[in-house]
């Protein structure tokens, strides 16, 4: 029981940044803007959040700075792919390098710690929140410890991430904004005919993507860690992208996909070099590669078929 709870707790922790980045990608890709720059935006957001929190001493200003930088990068991607009708993949690759290079360069120049930001104090971070009655109920069998260890004790951003799942579903499938967002991703010409600006709808989607990526970055640098370390996103943006495909661009499935990939991450951390029943000792590298392998298998159409939004990656040109 204890081990299972620890494993699940670790799963949730690993899943939160993936989930935020995955939902971020969901907004963008549903509107027809393919985004492989999630990694870069997260990294930029993580750096800005930690740098601002260290300088101002305020966790909220840190979060705002993270969101601001991430949205800025998202707007560059938007400008290149919406206004300039450029190649969205190329632009995404560029964003990843610009963020990685600038964060390391500025971090080193400002703080002189080899690209790190200074160690943050407790009040400069998002700390675990003890939910009400967690202590009191801990004696209740099964449910008590589950509530205390698994549900309670995460930071604010973690709860926000899971709250964003139903919110994203509601926004995309129950509001006019969401309908238009999905429509420009499937058939922009029809939206244009209805007299609605395709560019503006896509820009708004890209901004939503930037906001969520910034929060994901902040979770890493001022949530679970006490500062920014060079390349701290470590490919999470790409795992989020994989999860997005795995979830077939749907919010609730996205949560399950991120929890699955988070679970793989948790097993990797928890069971390094431990012999598992039936399987024996699984090389840790296999666990690391598993999300990517699963995604390739899915893309190959062996477990269901992932069909992306129809207008994804195609710049919209008004007919004359």
């Amino acid at each position: 029981m204890e081990t299972i709870l620890q494993l699940l707790d670790l799963t949730v922790r690993s899943a939160v940044p993936l989930l935020l980045a995955c939902l971020a990608g969901l907004y963008s890709e549903r509107s027809g803007i393919v985004d492989i720059g999630l990694e870069g935006k997260m990294l930029g957001g993580a750096f800005a959040a930690a740098a601002a929190a260290a300088v101002t001493g305020s966790v909220w200003l840190g979060l705002l700075a993270g969101i601001f930088v991430s949205v800025l990068l998202a707007l560059v991607h938007g400008f290149a792919s919406i206004t300039n009708k450029g190649n969205q993949i190329v632009s995404g690759v560029a964003i990843n390098f610009i963020a990685a290079g600038a964060a390391a360069l500025l971090g080193n120049a400002w703080f002189n710690q080899g690209g790190r930001t200074p160690q943050l104090q407790s009040e400069q971070r998002f700390n675990p929140i003890e939910l009400p009655l967690a202590e009191t109920l801990s004696s209740v069998p099964v449910l008590g410890p589950t509530y205390q260890q698994l549900i309670s004790g995460h930071n604010l951003i973690a709860y926000f991430a899971f709250a964003m799942v139903p919110i994203t579903w509601w926004v995309l499938f129950r509001t006019r904004f969401g309908l238009r967002l999905r429509a420009v991703g499937e058939n922009p010409a029809a939206v244009d005919t209805a007299g609605i600006s395709v560019s503006w709808a896509r820009y708004r989607a890209v901004i939503c993507c930037g906001i969520l990526c910034g929060i994901a970055g902040a979770y890493l640098s001022i949530g679970v860690s006490a500062g920014f370390v060079k390349d701290m996103t470590a490919g999470r943006g790409f795992i989020a992208l994989a999860a997005l495909i795995f979830a077939k661009w749907r919010p609730v499935s996205a949560m399950w996909a991120c929890l699955l990939f988070g679970f793989l991450g948790a097993i990797e951390i928890r069971y390094q070099g431990v012999a598992l029943p039936v399987l024996g000792v699984v090389p840790v590298q296999l666990m690391q590669a598993l999300p990517y392998i699963l995604t390739v298998v899915l893309l190959a159409g062996f477990i269901g078929k992932a069909i992306p939004p129809r207008a994804g990656g195609v710049p919209y040109t008004k007919e004359r």
């Binding site: 400008f79 792919s81 190649n87 969205q88 390098f97 290079g101 600038a102």
Partner: peptide
């Protein structure tokens, strides 16, 4: 003050301007 990460930044900017824009 200027680490080799500068090159990664330049590389990203070249990809952005020569490729996407």
């Amino acid at each position: 003050n200027i680490t080799r990460d500068m090159i990664v930044l330049i590389q990203g900017l070249v990809i952005l301007f020569a490729g996407a824009m």
